[in-house]
């Protein structure tokens, strides 16, 4: 087998591994909605800070709550927040990007100056600023991260629109007498779907990481609700006596991110012809 053939199957294998990881995470989140070994919020002071055992597979936290149950409940919270945020950022960003790319002229230029300025906020900064206004809450995070990542979507979508709006088939649609709106909806938006899918996959990873980071900083979902990020934050003071409190939530974040990254790479290889090699 040539090196090239091995590489090809390696890329595919990675995509499959990524997919399997994501299926497991989603399954854990779905099961967590209906059933967890213990009530993730039930306090049991007698059983606080117990190591992993047959009764509590992944141990208990400083209030005696079952870590596995909280991780499952956290999977649900974190994936729900990430999914909502990605939808919010993607739909909003696509709408703005398509309109900007289609209008061109001064309206487009104005939107892009504003967009670029929002992109000038590095990393978590814009989200931190928005959280300062809204305060730590579930919806606050979705709004903050959605607004923080929307400019990236706008940028990508506008680029795609600009690259296809002058193509002959778009011109043909106009010549046939279709309105600008129909042309946009029928011929331009569908061509944005592949790059948006690739972007949305990466976005899901970024948002999950950002949400964990915000929760870790105490600016995310407030306790007692469990997210992987706030479990890390509340477990941190006990790192010496109960290391499982920080090991397992972080492991969950890392494995999920790995799954998304592998899946994202595989999707990019398949869907983005410019990246295909």
């Amino acid at each position: 087998m040539s090196a090239r053939a091995i590489g090809f199957s390696f890329a595919q294998a990675n995509g499959i591994i990524g997919g399997v990881i994501m299926v497991v995470v989603v399954a854990a989140a779905l099961i967590g909605m209906m059933w967890t070994p213990y009530d993730p919020l039930r306090l049991d002071i007698m059983a606080r800070l117990q190591g992993p055992s047959a009764a509590h597979w992944l141990g208990t936290d400083e209030f005696g709550r079952d870590v596995l149950s909280r991780l499952m409940s956290g999977a649900r919270t974190s994936s729900w927040i990430s999914l909502s945020t990605v939808l919010f950022a993607t739909i909003g960003g696509t709408a703005i990007g398509v309109i900007a790319g289609f209008l061109r002229g001064w309206a487009d230029r104005l939107m892009m100056v504003a967009n670029d300025a929002l992109l000038a906020f590095p990393g978590l900064l814009l989200a931190l600023g928005i959280m300062a206004v809204f305060g730590a809450s579930r919806n606050g995070i979705i709004i903050a991260l959605g607004l923080a990542y929307m400019p990236t979507v706008v940028r990508v979508v506008r680029g795609v629109v600009l690259s296809i709006r002058e193509l002959e088939y778009v011109e043909a649609s106009r010549v046939m007498g279709n309105s600008e709106f129909v042309t946009m909806a029928r011929h331009i938006v569908p061509n944005c779907i592949a790059p948006i899918t690739v972007l949305a996959t990466s976005l899901f990873g970024w948002v999950l990481l950002a949400e964990s980071a915000l929760s870790f900083l105490g600016l995310g979902v407030p306790p007692p609700a469990a997210t992987w990020g706030n479990m890390l934050a509340t477990g941190r003071p006990y790192i010496g006596q109960a290391p499982w409190l920080v090991i397992f939530p972080g492991l969950c974040i890392s494995v999920t991110l790995l799954g998304i990254n592998l899946l994202g790479d595989a999707l990019r290889d398949r869907l983005d012809p410019r990246m295909r090699r």
Partner: peptide, 18 residues
């Protein structure tokens, strides 16, 4: 490289600290 960039920095930090 993919493994490394999938680990959140704050958790990696906690693990090094531990």
């Amino acid at each position: 490289a993919t493994l490394l960039l999938s680990i959140p920095s704050f958790w990696l930090g906690l693990m090094l600290l531990l």
